[in-house]
Nucleic acid binder design. Structure first.
Lengths: 214, 214
DNA sequence: GCGTATCGGTACGATGTCGTATCGATGGTG
DNA sequence: CACCATCGATACGACATCGTACCGATACGC
């Protein structure tokens, strides 16, 4: 666990102001995000992050001026889409795959969103960083999945349900813990796609019924 | 809204300041919930509530031992269903009415849930109170609406989409602010019901064709 | 009118965190 | 080898909140 830095000479080439390797920096980011998930944004302390990463507060404050800026940096380091790269060639299958992907990150991302949920309403930078970290990537990926489905003619462009599907997936992942007391797992989200999303699009296990009059 | 107070000689019509009347108590509860919505649970201070209600910290601490207990009491005072009493005789119309009701409380309840979202994971009493205040009443009311629809034969019992509808309504209300940056209003939720919920149940504007112009 | 209990106001100690300053140690660079 | 920036550790002041204690004032019951 204690990574003795095996820094290759190639990374030293670029002169860094800091002696911290990118890997070490990521350790700080992982630690603060984990503390946020566990304790909430307000309760996170720089001292706690320093302790858990065996560095000192000085180091954190040297690199990032304040706690909010530190957290923002940590969030930005996590920008990635959990649903990227999904492209099975079938809209229904893409949506099922998206459900699997969303389920995989359900607990982690939901905790983070929950823990930052209010702080975000008070700090615009934080809000932006959180959006870029775990909201927009998923929404964008889902929109892309839908766009391709329309492009392939699987669903009529402008189908009224299309507009709501990203928010539906997102909302179900976040709502389930509140409603049922447990995180949205793969089985739950897959059943949801089958039971609600695909039927609304007239897709899915049932043979699509060609509308007689348009 | 604190524009009811007229400093100076106020009319003694119906308000007594001597002992804590239920109305006075409700003022405290309203104040703390509003502060939670605005500032977050952690940032709420007993001092602030005391100031905004023109009482003293002593009074608050006399009635409720600690801040968490005070907040729990405030939440319990708010137990009510925003969707109670909906019974139009038609499942589709009931769901539309539920959408309207959910929209009406969308901002208020979402702010509260957002602000308490994490505190709830650390305090079981708080979690229970919040559930009873704004989660279970709505979920229960929706289930009841669905149950009656099934009872009337509008939807087949055990229809797979039924299970997800309460969480969907709940989730859409909470997800929209995060996804679109604005609260779920009536138009949004009504379109959602038409576009996603009713079609998944094979209900809605398909059977009765409204006169389409164009 | 008097006693009592609660009211509102405020001062207080305890606690915890932020962010800064200071210190010795280390490792890279000319 | 000498220099110097950064590292980790720690002490520190500033600040805010919790929850308590004490105060005078007021309203109700008798």
């Amino acid at each position: 666990m204690t990574s003795q830095d095996a820094d290759g000479p190639e990374s030293v080439a670029a002169s860094r102001r800091s002696k911290l390797t990118p890997e070490r920096e990521q350790e700080f980011f992982d630690a603060v995000l984990e503390q946020i998930r566990e304790c909430g944004y307000e309760a996170v302390t720089m001292e706690g992050v320093a302790t858990s990463t065996r560095c000192s507060k000085s180091t954190l404050y040297r690199q990032w001026k304040t706690k909010p800026q530190f957290v923002v940096a940590a969030l930005r380091s996590r920008r990635q889409s959990r649903l990227a790269g999904i492209d099975t060639g079938s809209l229904a299958e893409d949506l099922r795959e998206a459900a699997r992907g969303a389920a995989r990150w359900s607990m982690t991302d939901t905790k983070l969103l929950q823990a930052l949920g209010h702080a975000v309403t008070q700090d615009a930078d934080l809000a932006g960083a959180l959006r870029e970290a775990i909201v927009e990537p998923e929404i964008t990926a889902l929109r892309e999945i839908l766009r391709r489905g329309v492009e392939r003619g699987e669903v009529e462009a402008g189908h009224p349900a299309l507009e709501y599907i990203p928010a539906q997936m997102f909302g179900m992942v976040r709502a389930r813990p509140v409603v049922d007391g447990e995180y949205a797992d793969e089985a739950y989200l897959l059943r949801f796609v089958e039971a609600a999303v695909l039927p609304a699009l007239r897709l899915g296990p049932e043979r699509p019924r060609p509308p007689s009059a348009g």
